[in-house]
Every structure is written in C-alpha cells, then in structure tokens.
Amino acid sequence: MSAKFDYVLRFGDNALVLGQRLAEWLGHAPVLEEDIASANISLDLVGQARLWLTLAGKLEGKGRDEDQLAYHRDQHQYRNFTLLELPNGDYAFTIVRRFLFDVWHCLCLEALSRSKDADIAAIAVKSKKEADYHRRHSGDWLVRLGEGTDESNLRAQAALDAQWRYTAEFFEPDAVDRAVEASGEGFDAASLRDRWLQEVSAALAEAALKLPAMEKYVSRGKEGRHSEHLSYLLAEMQVLQRAHPNATW
C-alpha cells in the first residue's frame, strides 16, 4: 500500500470523524444558533472528507470511491487522530477539542497547499478557507468559556487537561509522514509544533486557561491504533451501508 494513500486517508478521516462527532450535536446544542453553526462546520468537514477520500481512492487504484472508503473500512483501517474520536462530552469539551484541532488544521492545510502534488494542494487551498472560519469560531468560544463564569472556566480547563495528551500525535512523524515529506508532497509534522504552541498559548492566556504540561504519551490513531470510542462512532455512521450495501436514495 502506498504511503501517499495512507497519508491522504489521514486528512480524510480526521475531517470525517470530527464531522460525525459535530453532527451528534444536531438538535442538542446549547442554543439554536450554535446548533446551526455546528451543523455548518460538520458539513464543511464532511465535504472536505469527500474530497480527500475520493483522492485516496484514486491513488489506491482499486476502484474504491469515497463511500466505500467511508462506510466499508473498520476501526483499525481508520487513520484519524485519536483526539477526534473521543466522545463529545459537554460543550466545553467539544469546543476545546475543535480549537486544538482547528489551529493545527490551519497550519497543516497551509503547509499542504505548497505540496508538489497538485490534487493535494488544490484540496488544501479549498479547505483552508473553511478551516480559518472554524478556528475563528472555536477560538471565540474558547475565550468566552474561559472568561465566562467560574463554572465555564472550570469545564474548559477540565476539557483542556483531559485532551492535551492527545495533541502530541499531531507532531510525531511516522514512516508515512516521512516518506511523503521526502517526495515534497507532504510536510514535516514536527515543524508545526512551535507555531501551534505559540498560537494555542496566546489563546489560552486570553481565555484565562492554564497550559497543561506535556506528557510522554503519544496516541497512535493515525497509524490505526484507536481508542474504544471509534468503533461505536463507526457503528452508528456505517450501519445503513453495512446493512444494505450500496443503498442509494
């Protein structure tokens, strides 16, 4: 299996899994306006996932399309960051997760827009505009929660403390990252760490939230080693296509 196929799957799966998690807020968000915003962002991400997965299918060359890749792969074949599959928790957990990812996502898409692979670069450029808005939205809420009431600050801090350990994965290059970077089609995962930390630290300071300490633990979702939560997410997302393969409407 080519490294590039695996590499592209990662971006598709990140977008798809986070998009699915956000869709779970439909009808449940704290206020109507946020319900619509969550749905918008979810749909942006699912749209991005379609582009990435279609490209992955093309790179693989076995005739698999976006739907087959989304609905007919099992948990160990998914390549998303572990952070993104964790259950939504409360709204603070959802926002903090989004923010940590959104900052990384913007940097990642900016780097990918310089890829030598024209398809990768094109998807990155298109997605970046959406990601910029997502980051603005989650960044704004992060400050509101951190600076809001004692309760909202407490919840945002708890979410941050619980999720921080899963961010190390963003910056730990593995064989796939290195192979695609070497061909000029990817980027150095570790190189994003400083700018990410700088942007996140600045936002946390503004939100009166404390930066947690880095741990040695590194999650391995992008290599297909997931938490127990992903299989439940996939079960719900894939049930229709698994029960009625190739069903359309």
Binding site: E33, E34, I36, A37, N40, R136, H137, D140
Partner: peptide
Amino acid sequence: AIQMARDV
C-alpha cells in the same frame, strides 16, 4: 451576533 448571523 455577527458570527451567528453568518451561520444562520
């Protein structure tokens, strides 16, 4: 309000 108007 501006941000939400954008989404709604």
